[in-house]
């Protein structure tokens, strides 16, 4: 039954994936392959299934049928250790979800210490370096409540990087931020992309998509409607739905 043996080169392979919430078909026949080091931006109207799509990749949502193979492991296969696979996948949430009772540094070192079993001193050294890398060297001992939204999201990205993941997933990472904080988070994401991370990013930040994405995937009503390079997609959208969507987000 397992199909992991099929010749697949993608880091993330969706094949005819379907998912329902009750009777609502939230993912419809999704077939999509993300190559190693590729950055794919997923956009589409609210409720189009784009968050659900990336939440499936690390198993926060289970798929109903079809195949989803991540880093060579088939999701839903009894042989796949989900906890193990998740250590290879960073996930950045719209609402940050930092641990409020832990400092910035503790947020970053928690999983490396407890999951990767890295000695505390070593994990803290790496954690400080990561926080410095995202521009928060002076905030290592701050609690999330003492940080701005942009700073919290940068800690959240550092928290993922601390696990040295192969894949990073971003679920509308800048949607909850005040406008002046968006660029500080995007800058960090650009840096991560330029280091060769495989990324799936749900975002409407077209500047980011043009700068680092190899591909833009447009979703509507649970299906992938269009897929192309950022230039193709933004300059020459092929479908009415994508044109309608772009006219709305680009108007302002």
């Amino acid at each position: 039954m397992t199909k992991t043996g099929l010749a697949k080169t993608g880091m993330i392979d969706f094949r005819d994936v379907n998912k329902w919430f009750g009777t609502l078909n939230v993912l419809k026949n999704i077939t999509l392959s993300v190559e190693p080091r590729e950055v794919v931006v997923v956009c589409g109207p609210s409720g189009s299934g784009k968050s659900t799509l990336i939440r499936c990749v690390n198993g926060l949502e289970a798929i109903k049928d079809g195949d989803l193979v991540v880093d060579g492991q088939r999701l839903g296969d009894p042989a796949t250790n989900m906890t193990q696979l998740r250590t290879e996948i960073g996930f950045v949430f719209q609402s940050f979800n930092l641990y409020p009772h832990k400092t910035a540094l503790e947020n970053v070192t928690l999983a490396p210490i407890h999951v990767r079993k890295i000695p505390r001193a070593e994990a803290e050294k790496a954690g400080r370096e990561l926080l410095a890398k995202v521009g928060l060297a002076d905030k290592v001992n701050a609690y999330p409540a003492q940080l701005s939204g942009g700073q919290q999201q940068r800690v959240a990205i550092a928290r993922c990087l601390g696990m040295r993941p192969k894949i990073m997933l971003f679920d509308e990472p800048t949607s909850a931020l005040d406008p002046e904080m968006i660029s500080e988070v995007l800058d960090v994401m650009v840096a991560v992309a330029e280091e060769g991370m495989t990324m799936m990013v749900v975002t409407h930040e077209m500047g980011f998509a043009r700068k680092v994405a190899q591909r833009v995937v447009f979703m509507d009503a649970g299906a992938i409607v269009e897929s192309g390079t950022p230039d193709e997609f933004f300059s020459h959208p092929k479908t009415d739905r994508s044109r309608a969507f772009l006219s709305k987000i680009l108007r302002h």
Binding site: N58, L60, T83, Q84, R86, T87, I89, G90, F91, F93, N97, L98, Y99, L110, A111, H114, V115, R159, C160, M163
Partner: peptide, 8 residues
């Protein structure tokens, strides 16, 4: 979810 996602 955050804890789950980091493999705890």
């Amino acid at each position: 979810e955050a804890a789950l996602a980091s493999g705890l």
